[in-house]
Write a protein that binds this DNA or RNA. Sequence first.
DNA 1: TAAGATTGAAAGTTCAATCTTT
DNA 2: AAAGATTGAACTTTCAATCTTA
Lengths: 164, 164
Amino acid sequence: VDKRWLTPREQRAWRAYLRSEVVLRAYMNRQLMADSGLSLTDYDVLAHLSETSSGRVRHYELGEALQWEQSRVSHQLSRMQRRGLVGRECCAGDARGAFAVLTQEGRTAIEAAAPGHVAAVRSVLFDGLSEADVATLERICTQVIERAAGDCAQPDDEQPDDEQ
Amino acid sequence: VDKRWLTPREQRAWRAYLRSEVVLRAYMNRQLMADSGLSLTDYDVLAHLSETSSGRVRHYELGEALQWEQSRVSHQLSRMQRRGLVGRECCAGDARGAFAVLTQEGRTAIEAAAPGHVAAVRSVLFDGLSEADVATLERICTQVIERAAGDCAQPDDEQPDDEQ
DNA sequence: TAAGATTGAAAGTTCAATCTTT
DNA sequence: AAAGATTGAACTTTCAATCTTA
């Protein structure tokens, strides 16, 4: 219980961070589901697809963007395909590859869901924040992503500040 | 595509927030698992128990603290009990209730895991942050928790900031 | 009837093994 | 061998139904 511990403020911040994510995801899931029958993960996939001009994205790109593993991408797309929200296309030029493509039904779904979703994000997060807060949040989270992904290969056998 | 949308900065912040959580949880899970065979959720439960003087916590308290539903608490504790990390005790005074109690094995496990875990939290999150950053992070996340939990009953049929 | 807790089934996620193409 | 993707099994989380006591 010394230099290796978090300060009280750090401890509060760390727990608030962990819990905010749980609560926020649950909230967004309920909101989206009630509003449009989509989960937050469904929404993220559709949002990504709808932002490309072609409405097509390689599986591995989706995985990188969402920080998902390959198999999660595969399973998620299978489920969404079953519901008609996305389709699959082979990749000319790299026969290993596959595209996920937005169907008309998928496009309709996200367009219907978007306004309510954005309003919810605002009301639960941004409405209470200043410009500076938003910038700080982005900076902090981006840094976390870099650091956690940087050590991605191995979490380093963690004896980091090895005690005396 | 108008005032109902997020600004580019908000959009970046929102996505960074969502992704940071995915990446960070994965990182902490790997680190903990490699180091001590605990998952992050195991750790959270043990940490909570070990902070009480009696080493006992009511199930519903744990649920509130971690923002979990009842059934998740139940399942998680069952799994941890099977591994010997926690036990159960009936609640004198309210026969419906149940306590989760820290076993000696559970205490040993978290004491072994704590230094590495704390070091990882520091290295991935706090080392890059100023005092002010930490305060801002806590404030933002606390606000999210309040807002998301406030609307908890129903996500309100979401037309929240109804336009015009 | 509400609250605290449990249970089993369904849905989602991870892990390891596999397959094909590069 | 490595990259992109898939599959099935194991594990975790959610959902709905149930049980007991307050």
